[in-house]
Design a protein around this nucleic acid. Structure first.
Length: 564
RNA sequence: GGGCGGUUAGCUCAGCUGGAUAGAGUGUUGGCCUCCGAAGCCAAAGGUCGUUGGUUCGAAUCCAAUACCGCCCGCCA
């Protein structure tokens, strides 16, 4: 809030200096107020003089002096402003300006940190979208955590968000699933020559087969499927297996506190004729050709390195065709912004889907939809990498992870790195309830504040139930206190940036920083003292820290326990 | 061969779209509880930002090469 005010003041000073004939540029670059790395350089710094030196044909320091001369600090925001180094303008903010931030944070309540950048426009995030051919593994877990936090971040920045899960229930992998379950029903082992070529070998296939033979009923989503128990009825096996695995995935996601507004079935694109319609449109627009018995899309017209087959010689469509139809449907549903969160191993689909959408000539922007790709996850246990082999069925499932290390730690670990970077998930570290573990470090700060409030109540301290007056707030003067307020005040900017850049880890880093500053402050400063007013002021600061910890943890879907 | 991502302290990673003396956690070493939660705090040591050029007042950041690592490059999804 103070940062924006400063930007306005400097912008006004530039205009004023130009009017006075001191500066001559017609257009000024946007004023950027930065945070100096060192406290000696003030609370904020501005490099505008360095940028203007050349066009103004003056030295940076001369420009800076002109800016300062025309700066009108009517609100008494600035205690001191100075020109430093090559020409930076360093601002030292008045303590009273910092103190006045606290009531504003309180008034915003749980909404503190949110912005209205999205202005209520419609956005959609598609994530997880796992094939219903097995349990969710650790890679899906990262996608689930990142996607979920992206949704929370977009919602916090004013977007109306729809969370969607795309179900690939129509492809060859589903056939393989059905064949695998059927083989298990017939007692065929994986080393048997009759075992299906691309069959799923995991133990869970056996369980599905057993349930099928026993005639069990599963409820998944809005449908209910009862097994016929007939091992020859491949279609019945397929329906049952898909439902059974979907139920498993739903339960895992529920345990992970990840929910969806909409499940979209790939099969519906075929039954509703949307795939065929999209294909016809691409043909009509002249972007396709027949060759060697297949139908091709000229994706090279849209930046691909070679053309891609749309309709195979066997008459079936390749996987990206329904994907194009699906995204056309998203566009028609009015989502200005669509984000697809996927594993980086699917990155080659981006060009194809975007090319297909352009070939439709439907007025869809070139860069639509947007993609967030996360890199691979390596699991470490006991200092060794846990090898993952999906086909052999030996891999760490999301459920295993949640059961072993807990939901909070799992979520936090998945989003504490940039999606771009490969993630080493150290199970031993995530399990530790100690200082090594950043989740506990942050949650501990919250619990500690709650504990201090209990203590204060017992001692009969005056709790800041109403907004303290200026004289009380004026007692918050130590460097640690002002630094904490500055950090509290930066939350909205951090949230906006994390949402804009699709970088959930920025929230994790913010929380670590805030918890650290609080622990340090606590260690140095007695909160509950003999002086009543001072105690009230400090408790008020602590209440705001607690509030911001809660708000930021909520963005990650991590709990803020009162006791640990 | 082509595409995408990565390369920063012993290890795991940040680095605010080009700013001042490159940061945090962990690990190592040494300190701090008669006191609100020591699951905590403080201090020290630790770096040619993969390499080489270029752009400019200024580069970990932008550009061009190049070297490694991961993932893709199917009429699988």
């Amino acid at each position: 809030m103070i940062r924006q005010k400063l930007a306005v003041l400097v912008t006004q000073a530039l205009a004023s200096a130009r009017n006075a004939g001191v500066l001559c540029s017609e257009l000024f670059p946007d004023v950027v107020i930065g945070t100096p790395a060192q406290e000696a350089h003030g609370d904020f710094a501005c490099n505008i003089a360095l940028q203007l030196a050349k066009p103004e044909r003056k030295s940076p320091r001369q420009v800076a002096e002109s800016v300062l001369l025309h700066l009108q600090d009517t609100d008494g925001l600035i205690r001191r402003a100075e020109i430093a180094g090559p020409g930076f303008i360093n601002f030292f903010i008045a303590p009273s300006a910092w103190q006045q931030c606290l009531p504003l944070i309180e008034q915003a309540g749980p909404a503190y940190g949110t912005t209205d950048s999205g202005a209520g426009r419609k956005a959609q995030v598609e994530f997880v979208s796992a094939n219903p051919t097995g349990p969710l593994h650790i890679g899906h877990g990262r996608g689930a955590a990142i996607g979920d936090v992206l949704c929370r971040l977009l919602a916090a920045t004013g977007w109306q968000v729809t969370r969607e899960f795309y179900y690939n229930d129509a492809g060859a992998q589903i056939s393989n699933l059905a064949l695998s379950v059927q083989a298990r029903c017939l007692g065929i082992e994986t080393d048997d020559p009759r075992w299906p070529a691309d069959g799923y070998q995991g133990e869970y296939i056996k369980e599905v087969a057993t349930a099928y033979l026993a005639g069990e009923t599963v409820v998944a989503g809005d449908q209910q499927v009862t097994a016929s128990g007939d091992p020859d009825d491949l279609d019945a096996i397929r329906r049952f297996a898909v439902a059974a695995l979907r139920r498993e995935q739903d339960q895992d996601l529920q345990a992970f506190d990840v929910r969806f507004d909409h499940y979209f079935l790939e099969s519906s694109l075929y039954s509703d004729g949307k795939v065929e319609a999209a294909v016809q449109q691409m043909i009509a627009n002249g972007h396709t050709y027949e060759q060697e018995g297949a139908l091709w899309l000229r994706t090279t017209d849209f930046g691909d390195d070679k053309d891609r087959v749309m309709r195979k010689t066997d008459g079936g469509y390749t996987y990206f065709v329904p994907d194009v139809a699906y995204h056309l449907d998203k566009w028609q549903r009015g989502f200005l912004r669509v984000v697809n969160e996927q594993g980086a191993d699917h990155h080659s689909t981006i060009t194809r889907v975007r090319a297909g959408l352009q070939a439709l000539n439907a007025g869809i922007p070139k860069g639509w939809p947007e993609y967030v790709l996360h890199q691979m996850v390596t699991v470490m246990r006991g200092g060794e990498e846990v090898k993952i082999s999906k086909r052999a069925g030996s891999y760490v499932t999301l459920r295993d992870l949640i059961d072993e290390v807990g939901r909070d730690a799992t979520r936090f670990f998945f989003v504490m790195r940039r999606p771009d970077s490969q993630l080493v998930f150290d199970i031993d570290l995530a399990k530790q309830q100690s200082l090594d573990n950043p989740v506990y470090y942050i949650q501990y700060a919250h619990a500690r504040i709650c504990s201090i409030f209990e203590n204060a109540t017992e001692k009969g301290a005056v709790l800041p139930s109403i907004e303290p007056d200026a004289a009380t707030l004026a007692l918050l003067t130590s460097p640690e206190e002002l630094r904490l307020i500055r950090l509290l005040g930066s939350l909205p900017g951090v949230v906006d940036e994390a949402a804009r850049d699709f970088e959930p880890h920025k929230i994790a880093y913010y929380l670590t920083e805030l918890a650290g500053q609080f622990h340090s402050y606590y260690n140095k400063t007695k909160v509950v003292t003999e002086e009543q007013t001072l105690t009230t002021a400090r408790l008020y600061l602590l209440a705001r820290i607690r509030q911001v910890l809660q708000n930021a943890l909520a963005l990650l879907g991590v709990s803020a326990p009162e006791r640990m």
